[in-house]
Amino acid sequence: MDIVYSLINVVIFILFAPLFEGVVRKLTARVQSRQGPPVIQPYFDILKLLGKTRINSADNWPFKLAPVMALASIVAVVFIIPFGFRQNFASRYVDIITVVYLLTLGGVSVLLGALSSKNTFAMIGASREMVTMIMVEPVLAMTLILGAVKFKSLALQSAMFNVTGFGYSVSIILMLVVYLLALQAFVGKQPFDISEAEIELLEGPFIEYSGPNYALFKYYMMIKQMFYAFLFVSVFIPFVETGFYFADIVIQLAEILLVFVVIALVGSTNPRFRIDQAVKYYAVMIFLSMCAVGLSVRGF
């Protein structure tokens, strides 16, 4: 029975991720007073990209391996998370450190693809992506460690769903604020889309990818967005829990939609930061998140 929950997780994430990306694009267009594409546009984009011919512009094995590795890592993360408050097949074997490693593996595969492209723009994009990854990872780890410290266990269920079991203490509220302020860099939207800067760097690390490879990378970015929105919902707002599995899924999807609305509104009204400004902003975030974990150790 447990493996069914894992498979349903994967199917739901694969089906709904482009829809949320379409909502983000439509809302960005409305903020800019224009009509915007239809909400199901990313489905058309991915289907069209899968139908183009494949041009292997750099003929080495990391170039061909990178998109597959990225998509595989994020689908593995989706396979193990408890969506809909149900423990699933892999919950006996994994804990929060696995989740952090798999997310980092996705970022490393983007770097692998970019550095094997033999293109200067890709190299610049890869170096910026490296800096972004380094500064984002401590905040992600602190979010998951907060629950682990409260319950003295590293299991996923305790870190994700039972954090607010004892009410909203000071450390949890501080962590909520820090996560919201840092959310834009996790999902790679303005003001922190430095690595995939469209006009500045001619699309950064993915410049040499075309057709089906690019479709896999785009799917990776969409599922990563949806995963981070889900992380916010599951760690900080889990108080609505009915017993039915399908009602839980629908409620969590609605909450994820609200988080995406916030992402779209913040993304469309902000400019893009330079890399040194972003690092300074993030240093403050890392300091605050460590304060939150310290407070929770002390018992607040």
Binding site: Q35, I55, L202, E203, I207, S210
Partner: peptide, 18 residues
């Protein structure tokens, strides 16, 4: 926004490979 062509699904990309 006035003559918006993105409502047909058209996007401007920076690299000819995309």
């Amino acid at each position: 926004p006035y003559y918006d062509v993105e409502r047909f699904g058209i996007k401007l990309v920076g690299s000819p490979r995309h």
